[in-house]
Design a protein around this nucleic acid. Structure first.
Lengths: 220, 220
DNA sequence: TAGATTGTTAATCGATTAACAATC
DNA sequence: TAGATTGTTAATCGATTAACAATC
């Protein structure tokens, strides 16, 4: 309510906040009470001046001469991002990938709850993954409405991804995370994040081959 | 050898190449022969002028008045990235996440081969995942040397991630992809990519809550 | 008071985009 | 020749960084 609403926060700032948050949470669990922008910069590989500038978009959090209080900075960033309260998500796909996501403790740490797991495979329906029983995909619309689910996670084979995205959108889901290696189209108003690990690898590969040129290895 | 080496290619360019590649591969499988920067821009949400500018860092690929030949552009981008030949990777962790990664067909599509899968758990050693038999982690150094592995994928529980990264680095691995939700330190000269899906979700959350403010929902 | 570190301005840097001549 | 689209320059825009006065 007292939020210092600013005209337009650059995307880069919003992308770095989760990074700061991760490091701050680590610091907190190490018992660190105060952190300077210089130290935070060292831990995140972000320029200290940029950290300070990023934070001032939302107000003044620090104390001159002292630094930032770790606990209250975590609190502020969580409030900015909206991770100060829990978010329920529906996971579509109960295979290995779905199971891995459901068991991922990083989710709970940030207030995400795997509320439902759905699949079309009769062999998987009824199976228990973590605390959740796999339900038929047909239940999607009902489940989303009943459990106040705001986020959908797509963990199905590529061929099924688009159809699942369509169903999620139809059920009112406005944020999706797509784990399948295929380009999925979503209607305007829906945010889709792709987590394609191969994309990352390809990107890295470029630098790998550059470096190999330098060190001159002559494998065929 | 004939590569138009340029002083410095901006990181952003290298990040977008895999994106173009993905879309181009999709176009190729749809039987599309030629594509303009305008069309490619529509499919990737990248400004057409930027696509053209990005590509000129590496030479001239297009034909004025016509556009880009899909097949040869794929070929050029793959050569630039280094994904025109295969890359062997070692996967550490044979749990659900490891199994999901091993079965991920996006990897093969881009020439990545899961050459070995390692784990410390005696119950998993000897298990078959895809075409590969899970081996003890102790074999790491030997396996990397024998199979000319250049990439390591960390798919172990958070508590074990740093130790695995250290072992991979010691075995000579210079590119790592970390799937565990923990900050891992690597020595200089090693590239580490973190694939933390929660980081993505947190980022998205910001925009989600902004939108909710607009539409004014009053859940508790 | 002296030392440290923020918040903020101003300077720098680089990336994005518009525009258009070159050319298929 | 007319239409289309590239390659490339120049203009715009925004993000990063350095510097420093404010202040704990």
């Amino acid at each position: 309510m007292t939020a210092q609403v600013e005209r337009r926060i650059p995307e880069g700032v919003i992308e770095r906040l989760p990074l700061y948050l991760n490091v701050l949470i680590q610091l907190r669990s190490d018992g660190v009470a105060t952190v300077s922008s210089a130290r935070l910069g060292g831990l995140t590989d972000v320029n200290p001046a940029q950290i300070r500038r990023d934070l001032t978009h939302f107000g003044s959090f620090g104390q001159r001469g002292i630094g930032y209080d770790v606990i209250s900075l975590i609190d502020r960033i969580q409030r900015i991002l909206g991770s100060d309260h829990t978010h329920r998500l529906v996971l579509v796909g109960a295979g290995n990938l779905g199971s891995a996501i459901a068991g991922y403790n990083g989710l709970r740490k940030h207030g995400f709850i795997v509320s439902s797991i759905l699949d079309v495979d009769p062999a998987k329906i009824g199976k228990r993954i973590g605390d959740v029983i796999v339900q038929p995909l047909d239940d999607l619309e009902r489940v989303v409405a009943e459990q106040q689910i705001s986020i959908g996670v797509i963990a199905v084979p590529p061929a099924a991804a688009q159809a699942v995205a369509d169903q999620l959108a139809a059920a009112g889901i406005r944020v999706m995370l797509n784990y399948s290696p295929v380009i999925v189209k979503v209607p305007a108003g829906v945010t889709l994040h792709n987590t394609d690990p191969v994309q990352e690898l390809l990107h890295t590969l470029y630098y790998l081959s550059r470096r190999e040129d330098d060190t001159a290895s002559s494998a065929l």
